[in-house]
Design a protein around this nucleic acid. Structure first.
Lengths: 203, 203
DNA sequence: TCGGGTTATGTCAATATTGTCGAAACTAGG
DNA sequence: CCTAGTTTCGACAATATTGACATAACCCGA
């Protein structure tokens, strides 16, 4: 199947669908909202809905994708001679967190999806994150994407640090942004300093 | 919904379903096989099929799950005072690779799933792999699962090494097991020696 | 062996997703 | 404005998945 993603028209319908979905979700809950309702609200067919979104639940992760897009651009904007870990750190800390919106969507996700599914999507985001880092790192080191084991592994480890910190943060009691920042910083430093396996070298 | 996963009976039906599915897939292709056919062949209802497998495609990853199970046990069998990276290395290299079967299933996957989906499943396996390592590592270091940022990040980095190597291997020309072993070894060593970000510390 | 509680299935009926094919809307050139 | 080439949509029709509730199969202790 061909997914629309080009013209102004398709952007309009996609937006209409997204808006209609959020309204319904907030008003009557995710479960109680059918894909058909969303499509009808947006004035299109059910089939068209599925041309724009892989699934009903995908709508609940639009913010993740937007964040990823933002991150990719932030990374590209960093100076080419800056250490990659530092670039990642700066980009992450500069993210314009909208705690209100994040919390709201997170509540919807928690309502509609079992933990496993949320984690699964998180993994997808992590992988895309790693890909973005690898792309940038490869560009700097002068190698083609996917052509260097070192680049691949390093990018994945950086992603592992960031998302590991995020997971750790979500499990903990202190959910403040400051705590998240602290954890990310610590995890990234560990990777940067090569201290990852260090403390556990003898376990 | 409650998923069966306990008694001998459920194991029997699950096996029957898996076997029926593989036969059909091999005989007439994945696309041309309906979930209903598989269920009928196994002598159960369609609904029961979905109680044992999340989706039709999940059957194409049964070998991954089996491998994961094998790995978890292999890891548990290693001495508690062995460095975790070494344990992982030994466990991976000891895996009883059945190249025939692996190739066959891989072909089915390639036929039925677009690359994105395959990668997505791979990520799930990687996350489970990381969880297994974290569990073992936490046990050795004497911390609760998910209670130590260092354990979380280290486990994820080890997983990143192994699966990064795997991805790299799949993209390369030399698909021999020896090459895969070499790549895994190199990637794990990099993590172990803290050389992950090292070479890129100035990029 | 006989309950009783637990677990796995069957039944039935919504939704959710996807393939196919033709029509409508949009774009660039004349 | 009109035409040809694209791209998005609508209309249908299979499957694929999931929820809810009733049954049958199993397991354990009296």
């Amino acid at each position: 199947m061909v997914r629309p993603a080009h013209t102004a028209r398709s952007t309009r319908t996609r937006e209409a669908l997204r808006r209609a979905a959020v309204l319904r979700f907030l008003a009557q809950g995710v479960e109680a909202t059918s894909a058909e309702q969303i499509a009808a609200d947006a004035g299109v067919t059910l089939r068209t809905f599925y041309r724009h979104f892989t699934s009903k639940h995908e709508l609940l992760f639009a913010d993740y994708d937007a964040g990823l897009h933002w991150f990719r651009r932030a990374l590209a904007a960093r100076p080419a001679d800056e250490p990659i870990v530092e670039s990642v750190r700066v980009a992450i800390f500069a993210f314009p967190y909208d705690v209100e919106a994040i919390t709201q969507i997170a509540a919807l996700r928690a309502e509609a999806l079992d933990p496993g599914r949320i984690v699964a999507h998180m993994r997808r985001v992590e992988a895309d994150f790693a890909a973005a880092v690898a792309e940038r790192l490869g560009l700097r080191a002068g190698v083609e994407p996917g052509r260097s084991l070192a680049v691949t592994v390093t990018a994945r480890c950086i992603a592992a640090a960031v998302f590991g910190a995020m997971e750790f943060w979500m499990l903990g009691a202190d959910r403040s942004l400051a705590e998240l920042a602290r954890l990310c910083h610590a995890a990234l430093s560990a990777v940067e300093d090569g201290a990852v396996a260090g403390p556990f070298r003898h376990y």
